[in-house]
């Protein structure tokens, strides 16, 4: 019975705290013209993950600079929100705090967004990476954004095929879904279009965090004869380190990974989310709260291939890459994955 008492007491305590806490702090509406545009973003990993979340954080920093600093654009973030229902709580809380745009930066957050968005018709939401705006369900305040990462994957694949002496190329991925699958499928297509005899070995290690297994997967690829590798998601830093140790070439994606191994990183597909964010902000300022889907592509500059300046890339390979980029932009190269 002692514990029953304890229980009652704690519940009482909790309720007391509620009473003390009182209502939600009300925000005084500032004068319209002085008020900066306010963005909140919920991200699944850390802002310095050298991958998916960092690409969004970097974009927001850049957007802030482009728009004229914190006086024009304020942004806040919740990182490491890998627990889906924690993310939902964060999204709802940001919405109720009156942010102009709440970004759910993870395909796993879509379900929550679908539920939350109708409750805050005055707030705009954005969901990535997807093409779904829930418009057909009568929800009109959700933007969608995605990266056509298979495009840069394809370009990287073309270069990888040209640079590989052994004809064996290794890929390290997390689980076979989403952005990772798009990129890897595009990469494979690029390799095989350039050198049909090349062999692309793909290893999905079943985790976004197991750096050690990613490293060992890279070693396995090298043992199997790979002399060029690529990979996606935040745990590949382990694979990059192995590539560096063995002098195996590396192609990066999502963020610029050159700094990690300047001697072996050939090129990176870099995401610039501002290409999607800018029109969103403009639309919201015009009064359009959602319904549009944006894609980062090579054509619109959302995706760029950044060559590592420290790596001495043969001119003919670079030419081939540039031609491939042109081909993808003008539509003469169709990548047999992705897209609707």
């Amino acid at each position: 019975m002692r514990r029953l008492f304890l229980f009652a007491l704690l519940v009482g305590l909790a309720l007391g705290l509620v009473a003390c806490g009182g209502g939600e702090a009300t925000q005084a509406p500032a004068a319209e013209e002085a008020r900066p545009f306010r963005i909140a973003v919920v991200m699944p990993s850390a802002i310095n993950d050298m991958a998916f979340s960092q690409s969004m954080y970097d974009a927001l920093v850049k957007l802030q600079q482009d728009m004229g600093g914190p006086a024009k654009l304020e942004f806040v973030y919740s990182e490491n929100m890998y627990v889906v229902d924690d993310a939902a709580a964060a999204i709802r809380d940001y919405a109720s705090q009156g942010y102009d745009l709440v970004i759910a930066h993870g395909s796993q957050y879509g379900s929550s967004l679908q539920e939350i968005a109708p409750d805050f018709p005055e707030t705009s939401f954005a969901w990535g990476t997807t093409v779904d705006t829930f418009k057909e369900m009568g929800i009109d305040n959700v933007f969608a954004y995605e990266a056509r990462s298979e495009q840069g994957g394809y370009v990287n694949g073309v270069m990888a095929a040209l640079l590989s002496q052994s004809g064996v190329i290794g890929v390290v991925g997390p689980i076979e879904t989403g952005d990772a699958k798009l990129y890897i499928d595009g990469f494979k297509a690029g390799v095989l279009a350039t050198n049909p005899d090349a062999q692309v070995n793909v290893n999905y290690i079943g985790s976004f965090s197991d750096t050690a297994l990613a490293a060992e997967a890279a070693k396995t690829h090298i043992q199997a004869g790979a002399d060029v590798m690529t990979g996606t998601a935040q745990m590949v830093v382990g694979a990059i380190s192995v590539a560096k140790d063995h002098g195996v070439l590396w192609f990066g994606t999502q963020a610029d990974q050159s700094s990690l191994a300047p001697e072996i990183v050939v090129a990176n597909q870099v995401y610039d989310w501002t290409v999607a964010l800018k029109p969103m902000v403009e639309n919201i300022q015009k009064g359009v709260r959602g319904g549009e889907a944006y894609s980062l592509t090579l054509a619109n500059g959302g995706l760029t291939i950044q060559y590592n300046p420290a790596f001495n890339l043969p001119a003919e390979v670079k030419d081939a890459a540039q031609k491939t980029i042109q081909g993808i932009i003008d539509g003469s190269i169709q990548i047999p994955v992705g897209g609707e």
Binding site: Y82, V84, D85, Q108, S111, S112, I175, F208
Partner: peptide
């Protein structure tokens, strides 16, 4: 309860915690 009460579907981010919240 997490599925029927909170998320209404199952989603994975590749880890256990993503679903269970630890």
């Amino acid at each position: 309860v997490q599925v029927y009460g909170v998320n209404y579907r199952m989603i994975t981010d590749g880890s256990a915690t993503g679903f269970t919240g630890g």
